Amino acid sequence: MHFYQQRKISLKTRINVMRAYVWSILLYGCECWTLPKDTEQRPEAVVMWFIRRIIKVSWTKRKTNADIMDMAGYKKFLLNTIRERQIKIFGHIIRADELKNY
């Protein structure tokens, strides 16, 4: 049995472990990604898949993502995190170019 399926561990801890381990791998290099509108939802879909696994709700059960997020106490903000990282690296690039001109 995987750690995220053990009932001894609280749901909040399992979600935090997912954020610590899965997000670090999922978001690796996201500063350089180009996300067209049709693929913007893919990272969130992966996170929803993990959350469904954590709370043991099969995808065949007709539960909406909003219901799953309410059950897990999770809010979508992965795409915002990606955008923030992209803006941050863009700022570094712009400042680096300005420093070269001096």
Rank of each mutant, 00 (worst) to 15 (best):
H2S: 10
F3Y: 11
F3I: 09
Y4G: 00
Y4P: 03
Y4A: 06
Q5A: 10
Q6S: 08
R7C: 03
R7L: 02
I9T: 03
I9Y: 07
I9C: 06
I9W: 06
S10C: 02
K12H: 05
K12N: 04
T13I: 09
R14T: 00
I15V: 09
I15D: 00
N16E: 14
N16Q: 09
N16K: 10
N16D: 11
V17D: 07
M18Y: 01
R19C: 10
Y21N: 14
Y21A: 14
Y21L: 14
V22A: 09
V22T: 11
V22H: 02
W23P: 07
W23T: 04
I25V: 12
I25P: 07
I25A: 13
L26R: 03
L27C: 05
Y28S: 10
C30A: 11
C30H: 09
E31I: 00
E31N: 12
C32L: 14
C32D: 12
L35G: 02
L35C: 04
P36S: 14
K37Q: 13
K37W: 12
T39N: 09
T39A: 13
E40Q: 13
P43E: 00
E44P: 01
A45V: 02
V46K: 14
V47E: 02
M48T: 10
M48C: 06
M48V: 07
M48P: 00
W49K: 15
W49H: 13
F50A: 07
F50S: 07
I51N: 00
R52T: 03
R52Y: 03
R52S: 09
R53G: 11
I54Q: 02
I54E: 03
K56V: 05
V57Y: 01
S58T: 06
S58Y: 14
W59R: 07
W59C: 08
T60N: 11
K61N: 09
R62D: 01
R62A: 06
K63G: 02
T64G: 03
T64D: 04
N65E: 10
A66I: 10
D70F: 04
M71R: 12
M71P: 05
A72R: 04
A72Q: 04
Y74E: 08
Y74D: 05
F77T: 04
F77R: 15
L78W: 04
L79H: 05
L79S: 04
L79C: 06
L79G: 00
N80Y: 12
R83M: 13
E84H: 11
Q86I: 04
I87L: 15
I87C: 10
I87F: 12
K88V: 02
I89A: 09
I89W: 15
F90C: 10
G91D: 07
G91C: 10
G91W: 06
I94G: 05
A96D: 12
A96G: 11
D97K: 15
L99Y: 09
N101Y: 11
Y102F: 15
